[in-house]
Design a protein around this nucleic acid. Structure first.
Lengths: 151, 151
DNA sequence: CCGATAACGACAACCATGTTGTCATTATCC
DNA sequence: GGATAATGACAACATGGTTGTCGTTATCGG
């Protein structure tokens, strides 16, 4: 633990971020159990829910992942019938993707499942600290980006 | 995004937690590059720095991980000469562990490396929101634990 | 129009981190 | 002293990726 109080406070916040992240991940895993998708697949479905008709490289670019990784996720989604291909007028071999009816239903189901825990946790959560935390983490995120782009 | 403003705020906070976590992980990876250890190994070393003379199951219990996983980490630490075994008077086949001189030096080096980014980020960070964020995340952590122990 | 170049799908090979299960050995408890 | 729990060692597997390569397909500059 750093001696400087401000740094100690930041260090403690970082510890909390890690602890919360791990718990959030565990909760998210529970949400996705038994619906045939995992959080990665859900993230890609979210991209397609926000903007339909994207190709695999489109999704990879918008999400920052590798093209190959997104491809494997999309392949799993295709195998599960959650997304379907649509002819791409701009590229013969690179089809556009869209959620199927089943894919939309599964996505909605996961969203529905997460609503209850979210409401339970948000209920009576002190509003002002919540806002402050969101803003502080946005600032921290920004500073970490600066840290990462240091040459 | 949930319609309720309070839930939306919480949702946004969760998004920020994930974003910060990923950046923190990337920064941490940079800190460990070229010193021969990874963050997992460092965590075990931290346990040993805090209390020397623990056995593998001791560390596993205190850190919540599986015994086998800690064993693989400890094996890597032994192979790298970062920790050494000490005879365990209470168990012939389960030696106690201790950081070697090299292990202590490496641990100190990583700690030293992280001091600079920590100080840069903490510098001029608004103190009140930082405290509020730490407290809010502690509360969130607690509520997530309740969520996870729901039957 | 044509050639170079970039982007694409598909596939394989890895890698890292961590879990789970099993076995023989060793402590511990009744 | 005998049942039971704890331990090290090892294998198998799961997950979520990355990296590299290949042949094909668009795109852009001349």
């Amino acid at each position: 633990m750093p001696p400087d109080p401000q740094e100690a406070e930041l260090y403690e916040l970082i510890v909390r971020i890690r602890a919360c992240f791990n718990r959030l991940r565990t909760v998210a895993e529970g949400l996705h159990r038994d619906v045939g998708i995992n959080p990665s697949m859900r993230a890609v479905m979210e991209s397609l829910a926000a903007r339909r008709g994207q190709s695999v490289p489109d999704i990879a670019r918008s999400r920052g992942g590798s093209r190959q990784h997104v491809q494997t996720i999309v392949n799993a989604l295709l195998a599960g019938g959650f997304v379907a291909t649509v002819d791409n007028p701009a590229h013969r071999r690179s089809p556009l993707l869209d959620l199927t009816k089943s894919g939309r239903a599964t996505f909605a189901e996961v969203s529905r499942r997460e609503a209850a825990p979210l409401a339970r946790i948000a209920r009576d959560f002190p509003a002002a600290p919540l806002r402050a935390a969101r803003r502080a983490l946005a600032e921290l995120e920004h500073r970490l980006d600066e840290e990462l782009t240091r040459t």
